[in-house]
Amino acid sequence: MTLPTVGTVLGEFEAVLDRDRVWRVDWAVGLDAPEYQDPELARGLGHPDIPIPPGALVFFSFLADDSWLALAGIRFDRSLAVRRRIRNHRMLHVGDVVKGRSIIESVDVRDSKQAKIVTTTIATEYLVEGAVAVEEAVTYSTRHPGEPA
């Protein structure tokens, strides 16, 4: 078993936040919030455009491909996301251009009787106009049955 390496850069990105993301999230979760659907209504509430619902960004949305999975040692037959932390510094809106970089922040290995459990945290900063708008950390737990660490 090769452990992922702390500090590995999984990818960098620059992307425009679009309405499609918000509309899909709003419908999928059943938020039924008119400010997430109607840009004029959102502007009437003081937003420059439709706001991005809190929690509706995740790093892998923005990475160019799935190569991060191997770099982070994530296998979907063995891995689950177990924790998500988000720190908001400002609200984001449709039309904002976010720049970011995702890195492996920490790796922890724990022995159990049946498996090694590798816990990997991926940290991402989302910058808008040069300032950090959102910090995110997603933690995955990966089970390695019968494998030495």
């Binding site: 809190p54 995740v58 177990v82 609200m91």
Partner: peptide, 29 residues
């Protein structure tokens, strides 16, 4: 996806306090 729980819980908080007031979210699945 776990993200649905994240968005849902954040929305519940936003209904009470406003989305702009949310500073940190720390959730375990």
């Amino acid at each position: 996806p776990g993200g649905i729980s994240v968005v849902a819980l954040a929305h519940a908080v936003a209904l009470r306090f406003g989305a702009a007031a949310i500073r940190e979210i720390d959730l375990t699945f």
